[in-house]
Computed example of a mutant assay.
Amino acid sequence: MDSQTVVRTRRALHAVAETLLAGPQYRTSGTIRLEACPGGFATRSEPWLRVVGAELVAAGRYLPLVRTTCAVLAAEVGVAVGAPAGLYQEGAGVGSEEVIDVDPAAAEWLARCFAIGDAALRGTFPGSDPVIWPEHFDIGVTVDAANYGVSPGDDFQPEPYAYVGPHAVQQGEFWNAPFGAARTIRDLGAVRGVADFFSHGRQLLAGSA
């Protein structure tokens, strides 16, 4: 699939995650934390909503995320559309009346990347609790003053990538990004490659302590 389709789909899914899942969950249950689920991502508390592929799932209803808006979807599932208020400055940048369009193949690829990230984080950091954060729409954990995770893409890198983001600036070949280190999921492959990347970054940081 072409990169424009992936970016368009990622932007649409980010909007859904932020304004239909995290926002309503924050207003109802006091948390913005989302999580990976088979085929996509989901809330952790009420309202119980999830995205699987190119559909929003709510109370047994499957609503296609094709040529629609977050406002229309919110009305369909009975939630108030909108991002969590006052918690962060960035976000999807998609208005509730803006038409969104999710490509099923691209959605499947992005869901796979979240699943890879979730598994690699749990394998590298036993007992960790990977969270999908609605601000940047990435899945990650923080361990020993460093962020580890997988992003589905952003302005820095348009395709999905794994990252290690130490809180202190590092020097060396491994650290190839403004925030630390990044490698695309395509380059790293599946769970083992991403886990090895996390482990390498962790080892380097332990040596610099």
Rank of each mutant, 00 (worst) to 15 (best):
L65F: 01
V7C: 07
A17I: 09
S29W: 06
S45R: 12
A12T: 09
Y88E: 07
T69D: 04
E46P: 13
G91W: 03
E97V: 11
F41Q: 03
Y62T: 15
E55T: 13
L87R: 00
R8I: 01
V51P: 04
Q89M: 15
G30C: 08
G93D: 05
V81I: 08
V7H: 00
V72T: 14
R8N: 12
V79R: 00
V51T: 08
L13T: 01
A42K: 09
A15S: 11
S45H: 13
A42L: 01
L49Q: 02
E76L: 04
G40C: 12
R44N: 08
V7S: 09
V81M: 09
A80L: 12
L13P: 07
R11T: 15
A80H: 13
T9H: 00
R11F: 10
F41A: 02
T69P: 02
A92W: 07
G82R: 02
L87K: 00
G91P: 00
R44C: 10
G82T: 07
S45W: 12
A80M: 12
T9N: 03
S45P: 10
T43H: 04
E35I: 15
V72Y: 07
R8F: 06
V77F: 06
E97F: 06
P64W: 13
G23M: 06
C70Y: 01
G86C: 05
A85H: 07
L73S: 05
T68Q: 03
